[in-house]
């Protein structure tokens, strides 16, 4: 199957892309790795008038330590995140999560910015950035702003990102010594998570447990109050709204969230100890 026809632009700079976005508004869509956008367009579930290709902008492709944070260019591919020495040392959760995304071919194309922008609650990386308490850096003709990931998502496939804004960077805290783990539950290796749980430094991010990536706030609070892992994990599904679909009922997802949270917390504790 093939997409509905569209116009195509490949600006040379991020500012050029932002200018085009501003000019064309809702009719335009950014194309980064294309691994969320093109499948949607091929099934004709989406049909932008103008596609602005930012996939070749090297400006957006970097990983560097910046103070207490690691700054990751939005155009960085999953494969690059997965194999980054800087991240493996400074923020090991990110490469571990990136390795679970799709399959090698998907990871060779998909980008961190695209994954965050797409705002699919079943995606892995948004929940990881959420558990890390990271920041999204957005650029528009009005300039740049930083949005904490905790305030970024507003619903299924939606965020506070304005149509004329482009994600330029994702900032995650350096967490070299923190305990961390990612538990992704799938039936087939390259499937989307039925449920995923990212844990770092006592914070818990949930994949596919509601319209947006969520923090298991009750679990985090209980841990802070000194509860056991077992007891804290039993609260992981509170204040979640998991979907029911072919892969599982909401009830099953709640169960999985509790089991996986316990396992992730146990693994994270082992990492922190070791």
């Amino acid at each position: 199957m093939i997409p509905v026809g569209f116009d195509y632009a490949r600006p040379d700079t991020v500012d050029g892309a932002v200018a085009l976005l501003a000019e064309h508004g809702e009719d335009a869509t950014l194309l980064a790795g294309g691994h969320s956008l093109l499948p949607v367009m091929k099934l004709r579930l989406g049909a932008p008038e103008l596609v602005i290709d930012v996939g070749k902008l090297t400006e957006l492709q970097y990983i560097r330590v910046d103070g207490d944070e690691v700054a990751i260019g939005a155009g960085t591919r999953h494969h690059t995140v997965a194999t980054s020495d800087v991240l493996t040392t400074e923020c090991p959760l990110m490469p571990a999560v990136a390795r679970t995304v799709g399959d090698p071919q998907v990871r060779h194309r998909g980008t961190l910015g695209g994954s965050l922008a797409h705002a699919d609650p079943a995606s892995d990386l948004p929940a990881a950035v959420l558990a890390l308490g990271g920041t999204v850096v957005l650029r528009s003709p009005r300039g740049e702003r930083q949005v904490p990931i905790t305030g970024f998502y507003t619903g299924v496939f939606s965020s506070v990102k304005e149509p004329d804004e482009l994600i330029v960077e994702v900032r995650v805290p350096r967490t070299a010594r923190a305990g961390w783990a990612y538990e992704k539950f799938v039936r087939r290796a390259n499937d989307w998570a039925i449920v995923g749980v990212a844990v770092v430094d006592g914070r818990v991010g949930l994949v596919n447990m509601g319209p947006t990536p969520l923090r298991a706030s009750q679990t985090e609070a209980a841990l802070a109050d000194g509860a056991s892992i077992e007891d804290a994990a039993a609260l992981a599904d509170q204040r979640t709204e998991p979907p029911t679909d072919l892969a599982g009922t909401a009830e099953y997802r709640r169960h999985l969230a509790r089991v996986l949270t316990r396992r992730a917390l146990e693994r994270a504790a082992a990492v922190a100890d070791g």
Binding site: Y8, R10, L31, G34, H35, L38, P39, K42, D53, G55, K56, H79, P104, Q105, V106, H108, R109
Partner: peptide
Amino acid sequence: QSVKSCTVLAVQAD
């Protein structure tokens, strides 16, 4: 690098 050529536009491979 391996990619799925059904999910890459020819223009992206320019």
